[in-house]
Design a protein around this nucleic acid. Structure first.
Lengths: 107, 107
DNA sequence: TAGATTCATAACCAGTCAGTTATGAATTAA
DNA sequence: TTAATTCATAACTGACTGGTTATGAATCTA
């Protein structure tokens, strides 16, 4: 159930790639050409980033004629949110344990 | 307010480094030697990872004699959670807009 | 059909980075 | 003081990867 967030972290670590994903989240489905217009890198670079995002499940592609439409799959971010939550909860648990100990010592 | 999550993503992208951070979240403050015992890499590698984590604000160091104790600062994960939340909300907003449009068309 | 457009892939390059060993500084122990 | 321990840094290396240009396949248009 707590899926491995490794691929997710690696995929989102690159700012250009993260920018493309953000663009898709903000503006919705877009073609490669539209994404390239904002990405600041060449079209092949964008295609490679899209392939990486697809590999991580963060986007879906919808081929239509000679163009391909991509859209974000924000659901795929769940393992990331889970991981973050888990780290915080570990910390909280220890904090609670300390609080508990202090209370006990106070008695 | 929405701080830049770039350094955070880059820092957490490496599995070894993320493992060290997880260890600190789970077990609390630990020395470099203790962390090295679990990391599966050399002590200098661990020291470098700790320096990176510290740079990102994810850990604090507490020098004590010849050893240095490190502890997690999970608060530093906030921008990550914020970013994730924001991506989801962008998506939801568009979804709502679509829903709205459909309702309007239905009238 | 011929030409233009859209995208993906191949091939290559340069910079980054995580790992190593070697070493030294600072502290503790004998 | 001498020896041992703990950690950080320097120097180096090899792998990875994000960028490029070149190219080709597929599709649309004139």
């Amino acid at each position: 159930m707590p899926r491995d967030p490794d691929l997710l972290f690696r995929t989102l670590a690159d700012p250009t790639r993260r920018g493309i994903f953000e663009q898709l989240c903000r503006r919705g489905e877009q073609t490669v050409a539209a994404l390239t217009a904002h990405a600041g890198v060449s079209q092949p670079a964008v295609s490679k980033h899209l392939a990486a995002l697809k590999q991580a499940g963060l986007v879906r592609d919808r081929p239509e004629g000679r163009q391909t439409h991509y859209s974000a799959q924000p659901k795929a971010l769940a393992p990331l949110a889970d991981w973050t939550q888990q780290m915080a909860s570990f910390w909280d648990a220890r904090f609670d344990a300390l609080e508990d100990l202090l209370k006990r010592m106070d008695q």
